[in-house]
Simulated scan of single mutants.
Amino acid sequence: MTDVDPLSADWSPAQVEVMHRLRDWVVGFTALNQHLAAWMRLPVSDANALGQIIWAAEAGEPLSPARLARQIGMTTGATTILLNRLETTGHVVRSRESADRRRVTLRPAPGSREQARRFLALAGAEVADVLGTTPPGELRAVASFLARITAATAEADGRLSAAAGSRTP
């Protein structure tokens, strides 16, 4: 960690532009997630969780409930209630795929996965076009930058969480 004060540092126009574009991406992604929620007829928090479960399954790295809770910023108790809703409505399947039968794996139900695919085919055309027409070198540079900024964000989150845990009310 450096001793830079982000509010008073002399940022270059390019650095400011990057921060604005990252903010814009978050706003746009949030709007698309709200559309997904409406498409799936789910609360936004449930659609966000379902999206995380689908992306993880597509990547071959299915989530556990605890990992999902960390990704969506909810407590494990609140995540359990959310997963109960998703399971009851047929969107998510919990299974025990590990030798350790206590470990639960989350998978999207086939119908929900297909419904999300239809949504992405409609909603993701512009993003797919940009990804498809961006030169590989530029994609690698952006991916590298995003990995570093994500790691920095995770480091700050860990530091802040540790500090919050060490405070007594």
Rank of each mutant, 00 (worst) to 15 (best):
Val4Ile: 15
Leu50Trp: 02
Ser144Ile: 01
Gly90Phe: 07
Trp39Gly: 14
Asp46Val: 08
Phe145Trp: 06
Ala141Gln: 02
Arg167Trp: 10
Ser12Ile: 05
Thr80Trp: 04
Gln71Trp: 11
Ala154Leu: 06
Ala116Tyr: 11
Ala66Pro: 01
Glu58Pro: 00
Ala125Gln: 10
Ala9His: 09
Ala49Lys: 06
Val92Gln: 14
Ala151Ile: 13
Ala38His: 11
Pro108Met: 12
Arg103Pro: 03
Arg94Glu: 01
Gln52Ile: 06
Ala123Leu: 07
Arg103Asp: 12
Gly73Gln: 09
Trp39Cys: 12
Ala56Thr: 11
Arg94Ser: 05
Asp129Lys: 14
Asn33Trp: 05
Ala47Pro: 04
Gly158Leu: 10
Ser64Asp: 14
Arg70Leu: 11
Leu83Trp: 10
Val26Leu: 09
Thr168Asn: 14
Leu50Met: 02
Ala59Val: 02
Pro136Asn: 01
Leu131Cys: 13
Pro108Gly: 09
Ile53Pro: 00
His35Ala: 12
Arg41Met: 14
Ser98Phe: 04
Ile149Lys: 06
Val142Phe: 00
Glu114His: 15
Glu126Ile: 11
Gly111Ala: 05
Ala154Cys: 10
Ala47Met: 05
Val93Leu: 03
Gln115Asn: 13
Leu36Thr: 08
Val44Arg: 08
Trp25Val: 14
Phe145Met: 15
Asn33Arg: 15
Glu97Met: 06
